[in-house]
Design a protein around this nucleic acid. Structure first.
Lengths: 203, 203
DNA sequence: AGACGTCGGGACGCAACCGTACCGTCGCTG
DNA sequence: CAGCGACGGTACGGTTGCGTCCCGACGTCT
C-alpha cells in the first residue's frame, strides 16, 4: 500500500509549486524536491504531470464554500462577495485559479475539469440564490441562469482576481446592490428598449 | 542597423508562441525557431525573455479598440460588448491575455505593465461612456469609477474569457440592459440605511 | 574598387528536467 | 524467525533550453 503521509506531502507540495511557478513551469522534479520525496514516489501514484494536477485540483475544488441564506437577495450577495473575496485572497487560490484558467485555453482536459468543478458549483450556488429570491418575489422568473451567473460572479472576479484591486469592505454592499439591479433588469422579459423605468434599491 | 523584417518576424513569432505554450513555457529558442531566425538575432534586440514580452505586449495592447458613441448608454454598452467579444474571440487574445494576467500574479513587472496598458485603457473607456451618460442625464453622478468598470467589464470578461461560453448575439443587449440597471443603482448615493437585514450565514 | 564595420547564423559548454532501471529496506505472512 | 513482495531512493542516458563566442556575408564609405 502507498504511504498516505507521502501522498499528502506530494499533494501539498504540488499546490505550493503550482502557485509559485504555475502549470507551465511545473516540474515533477521540483514537486518531489519540495515534498521531500523522490520522483519515483510521484510516478508511482500519478503517471503524468497532467494527471497529477487534475486529480489534486479537482479534489481541492470540491470543497464548497458556505452558501449565505439571509432571506434577502442583496444581503445574500453581499455575504457571498465577502466570502468569495476572502477565498480569492488566499495566495494559493489567487495564483492557482487564474493560472489553470489560462492553461485551460490550451488543454481541453484542464478546461473540462475546471468547467465541471467551478462552473457547475457556481451554477448551483447562483441557482439557489436566485431561486430563493424568485420564491420570495424579489425577482421575476429567471430567463437565463448563465447570464445571471455572469452578472453575479463577473464583477467580483474581475476586481479581485484580475484587476487585483482590494475590495474595500464598504464596496461589497454597493456591488451587491448594483448586481441586484442588474438581475432585476436581466430577469425581465427581454422587451427591447423601454427599460427607462425607474429602478429603486428598495423593494 | 537592425533589419526591420526580422524584428517584426520575431514579434509575430513571440505572439504565436505565447499563445501556444504560454509565458511559463516560452523559450527564446522556440521563438527564434518559429521566426526562422537565430537566437542571436533575438538577443541583439532584447536582453531577456521578460523584456521581450513586456515590449511586444505593451505595444500590442496600445492598439485601442473603437469606442462606441451612439448617444445611448445601453446601446453603447451593447456595441462595446460586441466589439470586446470579437476581440476576445481572437485566438491570440483569448490565450495570451489570461496567461499574462495569471503570470502577473507572480511577476510585478508584468503586473505593472498590464495595469498600465489594460486597466488604464478601460478606465478611460469606461469613464468616457459613463461621463457621456451622466451628461445626457441617463445616470446620476458617478461615485466610484472602479466599481463601474467592474460592473461593465466583469460580466463579459467572465463569460467570454473565463467560462469560455459563446456570447449569443441575442445576449449582448440583455447583458447591456442589465449592466445599465446595475450602474443606475451603483451611482446612487450609498445610503446604508435600509439594509438592516440580519447578517448571518446559514450553511 | 577595396577596406571596414555590422549583422545573422552555427556551434559550444552548462544546467535542468524527464522517465526509467536498479538496489536497499521495511513490513507482512506463514 | 525466515522468506517474499512492495515501496522509496539513487543513478543514468537523453533531451531541451540558456547565454555566449566566433565566423562568414552584406552593405557602406572613402
Amino acid at each position: 500500500m502507498l504511504r498516505d503521509d507521502i501522498t499528502t506531502a506530494i499533494r501539498r507540495a504540488l499546490m505550493q509549486e503550482l502557485a509559485a511557478v504555475g502549470y507551465g513551469r511545473l516540474s515533477i522534479e521540483a514537486v518531489a524536491r519540495r515534498a521531500g520525496v523522490s520522483k519515483t514516489a510521484v510516478y508511482r501514484r500519478w503517471s503524468s504531470k497532467l494527471e497529477l494536477v487534475l486529480e489534486v485540483v479537482s479534489a481541492a475544488a470540491g470543497k464548497r464554500l458556505p452558501l449565505p441564506d439571509t432571506g434577502d437577495l442583496r444581503t445574500d450577495l453581499e455575504m457571498l462577495y465577502l466570502i468569495m473575496t476572502q477565498a480569492l485572497r488566499h495566495p494559493l487560490a489567487s495564483q492557482i485559479i487564474p493560472d489553470l484558467l489560462a492553461e485551460a485555453a490550451r488543454n481541453p482536459q484542464i478546461a473540462q475539469t475546471l468547467q465541471e468543478a467551478l462552473r457547475l458549483h457556481q451554477r448551483t450556488v447562483g441557482g439557489l440564490l436566485i431561486g430563493r429570491a424568485v420564491e420570495r418575489g424579489e425577482l421575476p422568473v429567471v430567463v437565463d441562469p448563465d447570464i445571471a451567473i455572469d452578472l453575479i460572479v463577473g464583477p467580483l472576479y474581475w476586481r479581485v482576481a484580475i484587476a487585483r484591486l482590494p475590495l474595500d469592505p464598504a464596496d461589497a454592499p454597493r456591488m451587491a446592490s448594483a448586481v441586484v439591479g442588474a438581475l432585476r433588469v436581466a430577469c425581465q422579459v427581454p422587451i427591447r428598449g423601454e427599460s427607462d423605468v425607474e429602478l429603486s434599491v428598495r423593494p
